[in-house]
Design a protein around this nucleic acid. Structure first.
Length: 239
DNA sequence: CCAGACGTTGTT
DNA sequence: GTCTGG
DNA sequence: CCAGACGTTGTT
DNA sequence: GTCTGG
């Protein structure tokens, strides 16, 4: 699945790759955790159809939620059931987004042996997770504040990542990303985008357990550790 | 009809 | 055990 | 995802 | 808001 991820690629590179209109200041992030804000792309309707990037809170709070507590259980959304889940169906039609990323963490094993791994593309290029967003109105002390939140779509893990975990985030690039973000896309094109992720190769390396604490965010988290840092690159593809 | 839920992952 | 915070 | 808290009354 | 259970 996807419960932590990285975004360390310089903002100017992300701007060139994904073509959003802003020139955001994006400090390198090595441990983006649920409940934190992270940069997410959305696309406006025609005629301009501009692609934008803003920081949203990770953990979906549907518009009808009475309070924010549901967010912690809606950090992921299963691709297989999006259209039939009340929390996701309308967002699937009207509020698709994509979270900027260049790596994500998976944990494998039990108890003391539980080990975190960092998954990246072999070519190091950034990518985007398929996501859904919603706007919730927080009412406190008589004030009403809009809060935009997002969730990351997951699917069955590919051959490589099944060694670690049965689920993985949906990674979108190129035409699949364009189709996912296009507000004019019909349900057929949307479904095709989720299946049509490109075959870019991934790799994973074991990393420090310091990543376990969501308060830690430092370059060391992305560095390989331990004796077995080679031989884990099986060349399997995304999805 | 109304009331009440609405989600994911893994089982540490 | 279960929920909240990061 | 993991880590850490988890409660009340009443105020030294 | 929308769906499920009763």
């Amino acid at each position: 699945m996807c419960g932590r991820y990285t975004l360390t690629t310089p903002a100017e590179v992300l701007h060139d790759v994904f073509g959003f209109v802003e020139r955001p200041n994006l400090p390198a992030r090595y441990n983006i955790a649920p409940s934190q804000e992270a940069p997410v792309m959305r696309q406006r309707r025609q005629p301009k159809g501009e692609r934008t990037v803003q920081s949203l809170r990770w953990g979906l709070i549907p518009s009808w939620a009475k309070d924010a507590r549901i967010a912690s259980s809606l950090i992921n959304a299963r691709a297989e059931t999006l259209s039939s889940r009340p929390a996701f169906a309308k967002a699937l039609r009207q509020r698709r987004c994509a979270a900027l990323a260049d790596g994500f963490y998976d944990w494998s094993g039990e108890g003391a042996a539980r080990q975190p791994y960092l998954v990246t593309r072999r070519d190091g290029a950034p990518f985007a997770f398929a996501g859904l967003w919603d706007r919730w109105i927080e009412r406190r002390d008589g004030a009403a504040t809009p809060v935009d939140t997002f969730t990351i779509v997951t699917t069955a893990a590919n051959e490589l990542l099944r060694q670690l975990h049965p689920r993985m985030p949906v990674i979108l690039t190129g035409a699949a990303l364009d189709a996912w973000l296009d507000p004019e896309s019909n349900p057929v094109r949307i479904a095709a985008a989720l299946r049509g992720a490109p075959s870019a190769a991934l790799r994973y390396v074991p990393v420090s357990k310091r990543v376990n604490s969501a308060r830690v965010d430092e370059p060391e988290l992305a560095a390989p550790v331990g004796p077995e840092t080679v031989g884990m690159d099986a060349g399997a593809s995304i999805q």
